[in-house]
Nucleic acid binder design. Structure first.
Lengths: 348, 348
DNA sequence: CGTTAGCACTCGGAAGGTGAGAGTGCTAAT
DNA sequence: ATTAGCACTCTCACCTTCCGAGTGCTAACG
């Protein structure tokens, strides 16, 4: 942020942002002083506000209304004015306890994390299940469903399971399938999708066809991510007053339905290990520009990762959201680390 | 319906219901005659309307407003006045074509069916993936994720896959797991959950523990259904004018989030093979009483079934919804029948 | 020079008033 | 049984009015 703000300007900006986030109404000089004793007169506050407006941290919705933060104002707030709050320890304990209570199942954890994030932030939370960045085959299984219908089940190193129905032109017996499976499984174990594909090209017949399907199933598909995306708290975000302009609500639902929120977002994410905040027009995707997003990736290593995020109107509780996302993403990482072993460093 | 309506009363009721569904505004005698030539005067229509109101088919929202159908009115309409329309053949062909285009995957079909149902009805559609009523084990797989963490993957006859993480007190090698799997799989194949449990009780040690977990995984869980439920068209139903009272929208989201819509509904469903319509207060569940539901089950036999439904305000296009649900549920059944073989009739 | 008091001005939104339009029910005539 | 006529009711859209919160400016103050 190029311009330095004076101590007093910072204080005023901070209070305005906080009050506006809390109440949702534009903040005027007088009402600000009614709640906070700043030791100066309304006129002084007005002058400072005018200055902040010149510097694009605030705007007037109408001539005679109070001020509202701009995206730039939020950005400054998040960057410099937010003492990075941890979640209160009691809350941390409660949450840890909740995770201890539920089934030991990744799907369950992911869902619980989403629910808690939505709760803490009062907005919508999105979580993708952890997936291997470069998936390797662990195991596949061929099952004859009917004389010429085969079910292929593929398990990756990360434990992801995918099922595909393979219609065949000719009937195949279960025992033939079992034969193929027993022969190929040791050969293909621990290979990546391109590697499996490569072997398939050195083979012919049914085995080759199956290998190609296996290769295909390992590669994490775009639509996969969409259908696995877990979201909670839609009702909360729809209740935000800014959603009453149904255009906005509609756009959000559209984004969510298409799973587009994350696919719009992901290219923008740097996978460092802290929380990222993207405010309004900072979003590359035009559709996301009325929203604020707080995200972090989580996972065991560089290999197995997922994304946890909170989406709300730009007027959202950044402080709470950031601490929630930070805590939950670390907690998920921790849980996953307990479950997965270190990736075998095999390429050959 | 105890009372018989005269020909003319029927016609008027039908027109009112249709107009009200179309426009969403209360219908008056005059405006009805402006759109439809009935060969009688407004006063006559008024008298008939008064009669219909006495018989509880219609209500006045206000003294000087037109009439609106009651749940009873809708019921009569659905029961007696709706010539059971099929979907137009051209639409049928288009839809079949769409199913032909997509991946051969049950998940995909289910999602597509939901999308199309939402489209056709302009409301929200819900579909559960097909599940075995009495699931039998097909195959399970044990995978060592880490020295003392085991991943259990269970595949049922219906092709459903479930994964469970089993933390162990002591480390187990992959080859031990493979041994157990090879020994138990033939023994347990084709058994139901209680049957597996029974065998577990005749065993001890690790094998017994695993068998118990397998038995547990076969049994379809309540929450399972919830997390697998596919819904489409939420935006459409939220745009309905009756949803602007945010109480109603909120209730719907609540129901949807908890997966409660189906669990509230299922006990009420008779599994015959035609479409069922449940209107407003006919719902047992109080929370569903402001809504109308059109559902049908689908599946291959009595064994493998799912549910497809449309949910909207009581003012919803019953005709179109019924034909959509009927067509799509039959189509899904057809597709499934092609995929699954006949259930083996094994119990011994 | 920064701060403050004072003041004229602006504007949104709530409150209240009005009229048109749609609809009704009743009665009496056909 | 049907209908024309009529008095009556109520909602809704529209307008006006008015209050309050808020502003920007100017001039005075320490």
């Amino acid at each position: 942020m190029q311009d330095e703000l004076s101590e007093r300007q910072s204080t005023i900006l901070k209070l305005i942002v906080q009050e506006y986030i809390r109440t949702g109404r534009a903040i005027g000089s007088k009402s600000l002083l009614e709640r906070f004793r700043l030791g100066v007169s309304p006129a002084t506050v007005r002058n400072e506000m005018g200055e902040l407006e010149d510097q694009q941290f605030l705007v007037h919705p109408h001539t005679s209304a109070g001020r509202v933060p701009t995206d730039r104002g939020y950005r400054y707030y998040v960057e410099y004015l937010l003492e990075d709050a941890r979640l209160p320890v009691t809350e941390q304990i409660t949450i840890r306890h909740q995770f201890g209570q539920v089934e030991m199942q990744i799907e369950t954890w992911v869902r619980l994390a989403a629910t808690i994030a939505a709760d803490l932030s009062g907005n919508m939370a999105l979580v993708t299940p952890p997936r291997g960045r470069i998936e390797r085959l662990r195991h596949f299984e061929l099952i004859s469903l009917r004389d010429h219908i085969v079910l292929l089940i593929v398990v990756t190193q990360a434990g992801t399971v995918r099922e595909v129905i393979l219609p065949q032109t000719e009937p195949i017996a279960q025992q033939d399938l079992s034969g193929i499976s027993q022969r190929l499984n040791p050969e293909l174990a621990n290979l990546t999708s391109p590697q499996v594909l490569e072997r398939a090209n050195g083979t012919t017949g049914l085995a080759a066809a199956i290998m190609r399907q296996v290769a295909d199933a390992i590669r994490p598909g775009q639509q996969e991510v969409q259908s696995e995306l877990v979201s909670e708290g839609l009702d909360r975000v729809l209740q935000q007053p800014e959603m009453s302009q149904s255009a906005m609500a509609h756009r959000l639902l559209e984004l969510l339905r298409g799973g587009m929120i994350l696919s719009e977002l992901l290219p923008q994410l740097e996978f460092d290990d802290d929380v990222q905040v993207i405010i309004g027009t900072e979003n590359r995707s035009r559709d996301l520009q009325p929203f604020g997003v707080v995200v972090a990736s989580y996972g065991t290593t560089q290999e197995i990762t997922g994304v946890l995020g909170i989406v709300g109107p730009t007027r959202m509780p950044y402080g709470r959201s950031i601490s929630a996302v930070r805590f939950l993403s670390r907690l998920l990482s921790e849980l996953l680390r307990d479950v997965y072993h270190q990736e075998a460093d095999s390429t050959a």
